[in-house]
Write a protein that binds this DNA or RNA. Structure first.
Length: 185
DNA sequence: GAAATTTGACCATA
DNA sequence: TATGGTCAAATTTC
């Protein structure tokens, strides 16, 4: 077992919960995840790891206490696997740490989730997209945008998440911005 | 039958 | 002592 030791290499994102009523289901991000645990302490939290045994990438999905319609997804580790929808990927661990450390403000942090998945529902790259980001949720998430710029991490996160999920028509993998291709694998 | 999910238990850390 | 993270067995689904 590897108890919580590895604090480095985390990337925390916030994404609107799907309107399907399954707020525990994370969005498609180009990888196939396998659920390996769940915790009901405080807020329910689900643990996923890559279906590829060789891959040590993990992610945690947790509902926000102040806004159950928002999911906080924490990516951890790097992908050493190859998927059908994406090339070899591996997360830029260093920047992820910064994001994980700053993206904790529920009010201002909510806006970072606004760009998420807005194009995902119409993308051919995500065939199993489960109707994410309903109108109501979208309004809630997008409406929390503070308005004052000057947030480095927020801005970075917004750009990051925008890159991740606003891949409308782009031939590049949406995850390339966050999980760049790894030719040497 | 294989793969994925659920659930409880175990252990480490704060 | 409570919480967090993971494992493993049981169950469910494909």
């Amino acid at each position: 077992r590897t108890p919580r030791k590895r604090k480095e290499g985390r990337l925390t994102l916030r994404t609107p919960a799907p309107v399907t009523g399954k707020v525990d289901v994370p969005p498609e991000d180009g990888y196939t995840w396998r659920k390996y645990g769940r915790k009901a302490i405080l807020r329910s939290k689900s643990y996923y790891r890559c279906t590829h045994k060789i891959c040590e990438a993990k992610k945690k999905v947790q509902q926000l206490d102040e806004n159950p319609f928002i999911l906080e997804i924490t990516y951890e580790g790097e992908h050493t696997c190859q998927t059908s929808t994406t090339p070899l990927l591996s997360p830029p661990i260093t920047v992820a740490v910064a994001a994980a450390g700053e993206n904790r403000d529920p009010g201002a942090g909510g806006d970072s989730a606004s760009p998420l998945f807005q194009a995902g529902t119409s993308s051919a790259s995500q065939p199993k997209t489960d109707n994410w980001l309903g109108d109501e949720v979208q309004g809630t998430a997008a409406g929390t945008g503070g308005g004052d710029g000057g947030r480095d991490v927020d801005d970075w996160l917004a750009d990051l998440t925008d890159s991740m999920f606003n891949f409308s028509g782009s031939s590049d993998s949406c995850m390339d911005s966050i999980f760049p291709p790894r030719p040497g694998n």
